[in-house]
Design a protein around this nucleic acid. Sequence first.
DNA 1: AAATATACATAAATTACTTATGCATTAGAG
DNA 2: CTCTAATGCATAAGTAATTTATGTATATTT
Lengths: 112, 112
Amino acid sequence: MATNQLYKGSLSTIILKLLGEKGRMYGYQITQEVKAISSGEYVITEGALYPMLHKLEAQGLLTVEIEMTGNRMRKYYSITKNGKKEVANLMTEMESYIRNMQSLLNPKIELA
Amino acid sequence: MATNQLYKGSLSTIILKLLGEKGRMYGYQITQEVKAISSGEYVITEGALYPMLHKLEAQGLLTVEIEMTGNRMRKYYSITKNGKKEVANLMTEMESYIRNMQSLLNPKIELA
DNA sequence: AAATATACATAAATTACTTATGCATTAGAG
DNA sequence: CTCTAATGCATAAGTAATTTATGTATATTT
């Protein structure tokens, strides 16, 4: 947290893409997965995560199933058909953003 | 311009990097340059640009020289020594961000 | 037994931005 | 030659994605 501002605006893309690839996940699991993949460089705060999950659900992009593990609640989220459409748009925007940044900044990034 | 949110947080990096490379530029010129390089996909609004230039100047990262072209004012900005240090940090953050996004959004393919 | 990790949640504060408005000069189109 | 668009600066109000702070409860590790 309190890292850089660049991650602003990418949270919904990350959540939807992750759920599209990995199938259903619960909130806490998403934070751990993202932290691990980013080598600890992107830590999703709970204050950002949960409102975003609720928003994406309200928009019909995610559905939720509540399950109990012992006495502990987990809310498993899955991507919907509309969510898949939306993630395609968001990915296009992200690719466009990265391309433009590379043109503007010429950062030393190895492209896939 | 109601485009996407991804550009949030990258304005200072873009301005400082551009000034570091191209030498001095004035505000309007920066907007045109960025619009051109991004094929019109990133349009810096004046309400974002001018306050940011003032902020970077206040932080000692830019200096300004006012010049008149006929009766029209131009404020030419140049990067300072501290500005160059800062842009190096910002570039590292940007590279890190892009790398992490590529990891998060382009999942590794399992090879046989 | 106490601290840390897991797992959810929301409210207030922050902040980078968009939108809107304003002023003045110069170039170009009709 | 007149009017619109482009050039060039500026600031204020509103928006929204976040951070920070706080809360509750269970499970695990030290």
